[in-house]
Design a protein around this nucleic acid. Structure first.
Lengths: 105, 105
DNA sequence: TGGCTATTTGGTAATATAGCCAACAATATC
DNA sequence: GATATTGTTGGCTATATTACCAAATAGCCA
């Protein structure tokens, strides 16, 4: 693994990491439907505002979401649209996992 | 976020987490080209065998890779082929990030 | 100005992850 | 059987992540 590749894999890993938390996946899922302000997401997630804000900031830094201030609120939107396609792929893996585990049930 | 969705997001997050480490991404990339035994991967990665073995075990549990014993060695292969497409998506995000950071350079 | 509302940031404790070494298991070879 | 080769697992330490609370910041409106 040479240096430039190692840098690339680290950058990719950072994006994947930003997508590796249930709450963040929920938010991505929700933003795939419509943009939302922090307070709406906070309500939906059911956690502390600061917690949700931090999740959003992680995804913003990773380039997954974008935000725009309008009035009092900050509206977040999904920038990385292609991630939605990937969920199909992830769900297939999950389906296979469930099936293979059924063998032992 | 109702209960069944929360379970689904957690399951998805586990798969994403298994893909959130540079070394594991390197391995996925490599297995996308050809199957490899642990010793080959260990050599390529340049870490302890136990470290590589643990990375592989994490991905195996997640359903991302598969393994088969042949002769003395255990060959790992990529089960979740669709992940390779996703890298295109991730790389686009990276490209956008680099471009947007250039504005401030 | 002063008080709201919306959001971010810092601090902290609990938990999870990563990597190395050592020990173990399985198998092949002499 | 003894020994070498290939992988996995347990133990340990260092580091990272998460979630909450409290405090700071920003903009709006009376």
């Amino acid at each position: 693994m040479d240096k430039s590749n190692s840098i690339r894999f680290e950058a990719q890993a950072q994006i994947m990491k930003a997508l590796s938390h249930p709450t963040r996946l929920f938010i991505v899922h929700e933003l795939g439907r419509a943009e939302r302000c922090v307070c709406e997401l906070t309500e939906m997630v059911g956690a502390d505002t600061s917690t949700v804000s931090k999740h959003l900031s992680i995804m913003k830094n990773a380039g997954i979401v974008d935000c725009e201030k309008r009035g009092t609120s900050i509206y977040y939107s999904l920038k990385m649209k292609c991630v939605l396609n990937f969920f199909t792929c992830v769900n297939e893996v999950l389906k296979k996992k469930v099936e293979s585990q059924m063998v032992f049930a």
